[in-house]
Design a protein around this nucleic acid. Structure first.
Length: 144
DNA sequence: TTGTTGACCGAGT
DNA sequence: AACTCGGCCAACA
């Protein structure tokens, strides 16, 4: 049994309805709680130079582990938010530069990473294990 | 309102 | 190793 009743009362007004109304820009809106967009940006900004992290890792750190897709969705806006977000340091779980087409030029993401000492071949990070940086996960035992 | 689409992930084939 | 599938959830037609 245990039928799940889905409540649809949750407001979505704190999320951007149009491309021009981002949470960062319109943070004076009615939403008092930080949207997950801000969480994503905040975590992404912590990635050190010369390191990368993954969508899933950010999702987990933001408390939405199963929704890594939304991290990528949120990062679409990362180019226009106020403290800058090093979006080029975020790749998918296998080290592929899946976001490279979202940058001003198709080669910019790779170039920026290479400037930080990261080796890339065929849109894939070669030394992925070495440069992978994982954000601190709130209240989660990482002893594995 | 329903259906489709993502800068994804993990498990299964 | 490559591919498919189901799940997650916001935005959009």
């Amino acid at each position: 049994m245990a039928v799940n009743i889905v409540h649809t009362h949750m407001k979505t007004s704190h999320l951007p309805k149009k491309k021009n109304s981002l949470p960062e820009e319109g943070k004076t809106k009615k939403s008092d709680n930080p949207s997950f967009y801000e969480k994503v940006f905040e975590i992404a900004r912590q990635v050190p130079k010369g390191k990368v992290t993954t969508y899933g890792a950010i999702a987990e750190a933001a408390g939405i582990k199963l929704s890594a897709r939304m991290v990528g969705w949120a990062l679409r806006y990362s180019g226009r938010v106020k403290p800058p977000v090093p979006a080029h340091r975020i790749v998918n779980r296998v080290g592929l530069l899946s976001a490279k087409h979202q940058f001003p030029t198709p080669t910019l993401m790779q170039e920026m990473l290479e400037q930080e000492g990261i080796l890339i071949k065929d849109d894939k990070i070669l030394n992925f294990k070495d440069v992978l940086w994982l954000p601190a996960i709130a209240q989660t035992k990482t002893t594995k």
